[in-house]
Simulated assay, not measured.
Amino acid sequence: MNSLQKLHLQSAGFCAVLVALNWFRTVDYSRALGLQHESIHGVGGAFLIALIAVLMLSRRIFRSVRSRLEHGRAVAPGVWIRNWGVLFYPLPLLLRFNRGSSWIEADGARATAFGGYGHDLSSLVFLLAVAALLLFQIAERLDGRTPKPA
């Protein structure tokens, strides 16, 4: 497997995890005691994963740049972003499919559920994913892991 295929495989895998977590579900119950709210948001996990990736890659780039400056090493000539095509992988994060339903529970409480794929936080996850994909390529270039230009 060549380095460009590895780049695409790693980028697609990272974005697949984020896309798989881009959902939410909330249920509200109107009971005599008041309104009860239950929710679960997979998109929160996607946000944390993308944020951690950006922070870790930023730290890796900072350390690599600092090391190069301290030791007086230059970066070999070439492009910084090897493949812009990886930016298509996070596009599903911009999609939204929501649905809602309501019913009466056995105890007489009215329940309203709302959920689906996509969330207000998804746009931020998309931006973090794009940043992580670009930072990953920059970090590889600074670490000298990219092939030399022909």
Rank of each mutant, 00 (worst) to 15 (best):
V86Q: 05
F14P: 09
G13N: 14
L9N: 08
V43R: 00
W103K: 01
L4R: 08
H37Y: 10
H8Y: 00
S30K: 06
L69W: 14
M1R: 06
S122M: 08
L69G: 05
A131K: 05
K148R: 13
L51I: 10
I40K: 05
M1H: 11
L87A: 05
W84V: 01
R96T: 15
F114T: 15
T146F: 05
P92C: 06
Y117S: 00
A50Y: 10
G118I: 00
Q137G: 10
G34H: 11
K148G: 03
F24K: 01
V65E: 04
A32M: 12
G108D: 07
V17W: 01
Q10M: 06
L9W: 09
A20S: 14
S11K: 02
V43C: 00
V130E: 08
F24N: 01
G78Q: 06
D120F: 14
H8F: 01
F62R: 10
H71D: 03
Q5T: 15
L124A: 14
A76P: 06
S3T: 15
N83S: 13
F126N: 08
S67L: 12
E105A: 15
M56S: 12
K148H: 11
R73Q: 02
I61C: 02
G13R: 10
G116M: 03
L94Y: 12
P92M: 12
V86C: 04
F136L: 10
P149C: 07
S39W: 03
P77Q: 07
P149Q: 08
L128E: 06
L21M: 03
R31I: 03
